[in-house]
Amino acid sequence: MATLIAQQQPTARPVKPTTQLRTTLWLLVSLIVVAAFWSVQIKWSSLADFPSQLIKYLGLMLFPPDWSKFGEAFKATILSVQMAWIGTILGIIVSFPLSFLASRGLAPRAVNAPLRFIFAVIRAVPEVVIAILILSVTGLTPFTGALALAVGSIGTLGKWGYEAFEGVDPGPKEAVRSTGGGTLALIRWGVWPSAAPEVLSFWLYRFEINVRASAILGLIGAGGIGKMLQDNVQFRNWDAVGMLLVVVVVVTMAIDQISGAVRNKLIHGTWRAPRRAS
C-alpha cells in the first residue's frame, strides 16, 4: 500500500488550475443579476416609506393582537396539523415500498429509473399546485389538502429513502447474501437496521415541512389556519392577523421542538442532543 502511494506521487510541481471557466461563470452570474435588477418592473421608490409602513402595520397587528377569536384560531391550527399528519402518514405508506424499489441493487434498473423520475417530477411541483390539481377530484376539503401533502411527501421521502438505502454499510448486506438470503431477507436484515434511524428522522422532518405547507394550502381554500389568515388579511382585520401569526409561530416552533427531541431519541438514544465535544 505504502509503496503504491509513493510511486504515484508526482515529482514535478502540480500545475496551477486555470481559472478561466470560473471567471467566465462569475461574469455570467453577475450579468444575470444585473439584468434581473434592471429589467424587473418595480417602483423602488415605494421602498422608501416601507420602514414606516412596516412599523405601522406591526403596531396594528401585534400591539395588541385580538385574542377574541383565539378559540377559532386554535381549532383551525389543530386542523392544519391534522392535515399535515395525515399527509405525512399517507406519504410514508406510499413512499416506503417505492423507495426500496427505487434503490439500486434491491430492484432491477428498469424499475429504479422511472420511479426516480417520478420522484423528481413530484419534487418540482409545489404542493399548492398539486392541491389545485387534486381539487377537481376531491373538492375543497381538508382531506384534499392532506392528499396534496401526501403526494408532495412521496417526492422527497422517496428520494431520501433510496439515498439512505443505497448508502448503508455493505457488510451486513454481503453477510445476508452469503448465507443465501433473498431480496426480502436482504431488505429486512441487511438494509433496514442500518438505515432505520435516518429514515425515521426523514419522516419527522417531512412532518415539520408539512406543518408549514398545510398553512399554505389553507390559502387556496383547503381549510385550516391558512384560510382563516387569508380571510382576515382580505378584510384587513390586522389585530386578528397578528394573533394568527403568533399562533402559527408558537405552534410551528413547538412542533419543531417536539420532533427534534424525538429525532434525537431515534438517532442518539437521548431526548436531548448530546453536547459536541469541543
Partner: peptide, 28 residues
C-alpha cells in the same frame, strides 16, 4: 431567525401584498 423561519413564505407574501401592494416587490 427561528421565529421568521416558522412562518411559511406565502403567509409573509399575503401580508406584504396588503402592506406594500400587489406585484413583484412584495414577493421579493
Amino acid at each position: 431567525m427561528n421565529m421568521i423561519r416558522s412562518v411559511p413564505d406565502i403567509l409573509f407574501a399575503s401580508i406584504l401584498v396588503a402592506v406594500v401592494g400587489v406585484g413583484a416587490l412584495s414577493g421579493i
